[in-house]
C-alpha cells in the first residue's frame, strides 16, 4: 500500500553512508565584456592612441584572464534572453563623448547589476564628472596608459575569483 512507502529504504541507506560531497555551488565566475560606443571606429589594430581596439587587444593578450568578449551595444541597450550580461559581470565600456555617457546614464538601470569600468574620451573626461552616476569601479581617460587598464582588470578578476573560491570551500553538504 502506498502509505507503507513513506519511510523509504533509500533514506536510511543514504544516512548510513555519511558521505560528504562538495556540491558545485555558489556564484559563477565573473565574465568580462567590452563595448565601445563607437563600434565601427576601427576594425583592426591601429596606431591611433585612443582607438578602442587598442584596449581590447591589449587585454586579450593577458593569459590569466578569461576571454574578453567584445559585444555590440544592442546587447546592453536592447537585451534579450540570449544576451549574455549577468549580475556581477565586468563590463568595460568605452565612451568617446559626453553624449555617449549621457546615453548610458539615461539607461543606467541596465548596468546597475554589473561591475563597470569606463574608458572616456579625453575631452569628456576632463569636462564632466557626470559619469559617477554610473558608479564605475574605475574610470580612465582614453589617452591613459593601457597598462593601467590591464592592471585594474587583472586585479578585479583575481579578487573576485578568490572571493568566489572562498565562499565555495566553506560550503560542504553532508549527504
Amino acid at each position: 500500500m502506498a502509505w507503507l512507502l513513506l519511510k523509504p529504504v533509500m533514506a536510511t541507506d543514504l544516512n548510513n553512508q555519511e558521505n560528504t560531497i562538495l556540491l558545485k555551488r555558489s556564484a559563477k565566475i565573473m565574465n568580462v565584456y567590452f563595448i565601445s560606443s563607437h563600434e565601427n571606429s576601427c576594425q583592426a589594430e591601429c596606431s591611433f592612441r585612443s582607438c578602442p581596439e587598442r584596449f581590447l587587444n591589449n587585454l586579450q593578450e593577458i593569459p590569466s584572464l578569461p576571454l574578453i568578449n567584445r559585444i555590440p551595444k544592442t546587447h546592453l541597450f536592447q537585451p534579450t534572453m540570449s544576451t549574455p550580461l549577468r549580475n556581477g559581470d565586468l563590463l568595460i565600456f568605452h565612451a568617446e563623448s559626453e553624449s555617449d555617457i549621457n546615453h548610458l546614464i539615461e539607461s543606467r538601470n541596465i548596468i546597475e547589476q554589473l561591475r563597470l569600468i569606463l574608458i572616456i574620451g579625453e575631452e569628456a573626461f576632463q569636462d564632466s564628472w557626470n559619469y559617477h552616476q554610473l558608479n564605475p569601479r574605475y574610470t580612465m581617460n582614453s589617452q591613459q596608459n593601457v597598462t593601467d587598464l590591464r592592471d585594474v582588470v587583472t586585479k578585479i578578476f583575481n579578487h573576485t575569483h578568490q572571493e568566489t573560491a572562498e565562499s565555495n570551500t566553506t560550503n560542504q553538504v553532508n549527504l
Binding site: W129, H132, N135, P136, R137, Y138, D148, D151, V152, K155, I156, H159
Partner: peptide
C-alpha cells in the same frame, strides 16, 4: 552631489595615490 566609488580591490598600489 557625487557618490564616488574608490574600489580598493581594483586599484593596483601604483595607481592608488594618483587616482
Amino acid at each position: 552631489q557625487n557618490f564616488v566609488i574608490v574600489d580598493c580591490a581594483a586599484l593596483p598600489e601604483t595607481l592608488i595615490e594618483s587616482t
